[in-house]
Design a protein around this nucleic acid. Sequence first.
DNA 1: CGGCGCATTGCACCAAAGGACAATGCGGCC
DNA 2: GGCCGCATTGTCCTTTGGTGCAATGCGCCG
Lengths: 217, 217
Amino acid sequence: MTPSREVAASAVIHVVDDDDAFRAAIARLLRVAGYEVKDYRSAGDYLVDAPPDGPGCLLLDLHMPGPDGLELQEAVLRRGDGLPIIFLTGHGDVRQSVRAMRQGAADFLVKPVNREELLAAIRAALQRQERELSTSRWRRDLAERYATLTPREKQVLEGVVTGALNKQIAALLGTSERTIKAHRAKIMLKMRVDSVAELVHASAALRPRGAGGKPVD
Amino acid sequence: MTPSREVAASAVIHVVDDDDAFRAAIARLLRVAGYEVKDYRSAGDYLVDAPPDGPGCLLLDLHMPGPDGLELQEAVLRRGDGLPIIFLTGHGDVRQSVRAMRQGAADFLVKPVNREELLAAIRAALQRQERELSTSRWRRDLAERYATLTPREKQVLEGVVTGALNKQIAALLGTSERTIKAHRAKIMLKMRVDSVAELVHASAALRPRGAGGKPVD
DNA sequence: CGGCGCATTGCACCAAAGGACAATGCGGCC
DNA sequence: GGCCGCATTGTCCTTTGGTGCAATGCGCCG
């Protein structure tokens, strides 16, 4: 699909703030700094568009009519836009900052914000995103492929990544070894991998919390 | 080494605060809630002791003579105590809270703190630690086993988890397939796993950033 | 020097995985 | 009813992986 272009489209900063004047000022500042800027007057304005998927980040105000910044953050997380979020707000209160950070915000700044500080925060956020971008895209692809597996195939996959032998999986599912082989072949095709190792990697990446391990002992 | 005892030694809350009265009050409150408490008057008092390794968490004041809470946090991270840190401070300022959270604090509360809120934070922190504890122990074990591999075996392992065939690994290392088989057997023994799947899991857990994936396409 | 750990291999053999070709049964959908 | 996706199997054959047994060569240490 995507012809691998490394044209490094300059990062897009998505600014969501209900204060027109402030938004304009920030946009100008960021453009001067070399970023592409898209601005939105409300959470809804941002959410109606399809999730952007290039490099970039979000700059959110906390207090806004309609859904506020934190709510928008949750929505963004749910939707899975890959963008890191920087909050930029007038009356930063500790509780809110803690909540925002705990929900994965990249930073939380308080107006008035020093120009250098803002740019530094953005640079950090973009850098962080760059690290996550490729892997998150990869995960999305995997999830798509996984979704094409039939229920039975998912069961077999489960067995395979557990290290079970075909005959064991067969016994477990109450079918024959031959059947398992058939499913396995299908799985390898659908998941687009060509080794068990890759399959294990892939299915590990699919599990919710990447941290998990197997203290099975 | 460690005889697996599941005696669930009640969690220890380490309270570091320079305010004697406050410390005493908190300690009392926590003891009543069923926790074991150790209190320290300063960062130094905490750091001189060996890092505790049972279940528990840290409750830190931010403003203290000598190293302050944030500095103590850094020291604790460097030292690798496995304990989650909750900040509890009088004049919480957003910048500090953000910094604390970014450095991995479990929570950041502002005095005066609601009793329930504090206990909830502690419960959450302990729960979080519990999750991390087992996997971090598991990783440590893996690292130990990995360390026993000879350089050659590590190379072979690399190939195996990449999904390479024995013959390919052999070609890569310039030896025979038989040799690879020999190494593989040794690896499975030393790493204490009995399937390639487990091996892949294990070696993935060994890599620094657990997030990593393979956008090898 | 002799022992030890490590890397290397050969041969034979068995077990497991995978591909080829083919076929059956079931439940939905047009 | 006929087509299709999904699950199921069978047989046959090839490729890989894994083991047992045995042996060689090298560098290091006491």
